[in-house]
Design a protein around this nucleic acid. Structure first.
Lengths: 336, 336
DNA sequence: CTGTTAGCGCGTTCAG
DNA sequence: CTGAACGCGCTAACAG
């Protein structure tokens, strides 16, 4: 590995001069600069980032802590972060942390040890208090898909309530009046908010959503969706429109409906949430609420970097809006 | 940030002693060790990784260069790498590099600059020669989903040919005799190998695959699949079994078939390749060849780390086998 | 405009 | 068994 010393020696200048031309700052004579640049190119010199980080006390690297990159939602999140990071000449360090608060904390810890000045964190297991404490210690730490009232300017989140309202309204517009809802059993903030949104939309239309019309899947995946549909039918519930917590569950629901000889959307309309890639694989393709993760991750990245260098706590929060993607799983209600 | 100096001062020992207890090597008196450890815990001291990297000339970080983390295949790859890396106490640096050789080279370059000693590289645009040159310069560089004859021990790849053969044989066993094939237009090594495998399987059964039964999609995604099916029908081709380059295209094909009122698998059986998550979202769920990316990425990671510390060029290559996942898109052939 | 010096945090001799 | 001193590659004062 060729170092700054090597180029200084070959170019017959001091290392500070080399440093100046590398960082393109400070005054260097044109002839001298050209000479040094030439040697740099010839030798293929690249500054050692670790050494730079050491002296600068910052590493120009962004940490991303997510449950699992292999899940498309988080993969997209990571991708958005990477895109924004590259723009700012930052590198991306990915840390999967799943299952426990400790795992998440360890991931953050290791990132801090790397002197990541900016971190985008998607927490699933930390309490608000823990996160607030963390935020105090790490100025470039930002939370995505989460809202914490104490530190709103550190949060990039989605209006889940509004999204669910929009979904409900859409179904209403399509003439539906008999609704069922599928959500996840382990009520996380998102699912609660989405449920609220649905209630709001239906209440506005003077429609009651009986609790018996809400069914829960043990897991927020296809299995959970299937399971919940089965439960609904076991209770012999009738409905023409089904609002589902997310696309995975929605697709599971469509599968189960299909297996029971029920056509989507002719017999029952289904609407999902997230707009993951998978939702176009289903037949019919899923009508769903688009979750702009990529854009949110980009925003979060820029914010984290900004905050890491200039921790001015403006009180503003960063709220994104989901919007409807109309595909083929919702039809107009028509009485038989 | 608390440094080694701080703990040395507080513990009233020298920094070398602290260093010894941190790295758990060298002789330190029990009492002294306990005292130092106590201070470390109290102060929450963590060694500065950048400083360590600087002096050790290695950073214990693994670079992963892939086209795009948001694509499930690569997300899974990254995830496998992360899992293996964490085991070895390595951090993972992700670099998306898509579209051109230059982008890929830049990504590698930046990783080298970070003194990543181990790199897992999924190249799409570099020639074998370029990669061989790179491999010479970087001892911990390993190629995934690629075979290069000159450096077989650096390659972790899949037997695409065999996979396609298995797919063909399976369809044959199911009684099919009329085949069509959909592949990607930009013939990459994978697609060529898979095509070969199909030919082999069919030839073994004394079945000719006319070139007119092979159709190409411009892109290796759902669109490409739809497009290819349309082309096949435009040529008025008859077949009962369809072998598709990958799952995305296969799902596109199923969609197009459906749109034309053709049932899968009753009228036409479809088989994919890769076994991505998406393949279970489709109705019917896709029968496909499983591509063990995650395991391969884990293996690649271990290999890269091993090679980076001990570059002994054993001539062995690292070949993985795909296997059949039987789901619902293939049925027995039955004459009407 | 350019070179010299000091030091970032840590690991590694080498004396003691 | 422990500590002092040096240097990793680089940047940031400070001189000249």
């Amino acid at each position: 590995m060729v170092t700054i010393k090597d180029v200084a020696r070959v170019a017959e200048v001091s290392i500070s001069t080399v440093s100046r031309v590398v960082r393109k700052q400070g005054k260097v004579g044109d002839a001298c600069r050209a000479k040094v640049q030439k040697v740099i190119d010839e030798l293929g010199y690249r500054p050692n980032i670790n050494a730079q980080a050491l002296v600068n006390k910052k590493s120009n690297s962004l940490g991303v802590v997510i449950p699992k990159v292999s899940m498309p939602f988080f993969g997209t999140l990571a991708c958005g972060a990477e895109e924004a990071a590259i723009e700012k000449n930052y590198r991306v360090l990915i840390s999967n942390a799943q299952g426990s608060e400790q795992a998440e904390l360890d991931a953050i810890d290791s990132l801090v040890q790397h002197h990541c000045n900016a971190i985008v964190f998607h927490s699933q297991h930390c309490s608000d208090e823990t996160l607030v404490t963390l935020a105090e210690k790490i100025s470039g730490l930002v939370f995505i898909n989460r809202f914490i009232a104490e530190i709103p300017h550190r949060c990039i989140w989605l209006d889940n309530n509004l999204g669910a309202q929009k979904a409900g309204s859409f179904l209403l517009e399509k003439g539906h009046t008999n609704f069922a809802v599928i959500t996840r059993k382990d009520s996380n903030p998102d699912s609660l908010l989405r449920l609220e949104g649905i209630h709001t939309a239906l209440n506005n239309a003077n429609i009651q959503l009986d609790n018996s019309m809400i069914e829960y899947g043990a897991t927020a995946d296809m299995e959970g969706g299937k399971e919940a549909v089965s439960a609904l039918f076991k209770k012999d519930k009738k409905f023409t429109a089904l609002l589902v917590y997310n696309d995975n569950m929605a697709i599971g629901a469509v599968h189960e409906l299909n297996a029971r000889g029920i056509r989507v959307p002719e017999d029952i309309s289904v609407i999902g949430f997230d707009d993951m890639l998978i939702s176009v694989a289903c037949i019919p393709q899923l009508t769903t609420m688009h979750y702009p993760v990529r854009e949110m991750a980009q925003f979060a990245t820029n914010l984290a970097i900004e905050l890491s260098t200039n921790p001015e706590p403006n009180g503003r929060t960063h709220l994104f809006m989901p919007h409807l993607i109309e595909r083929d799983s919702v039809a107009n209600f028509c009485a038989k």
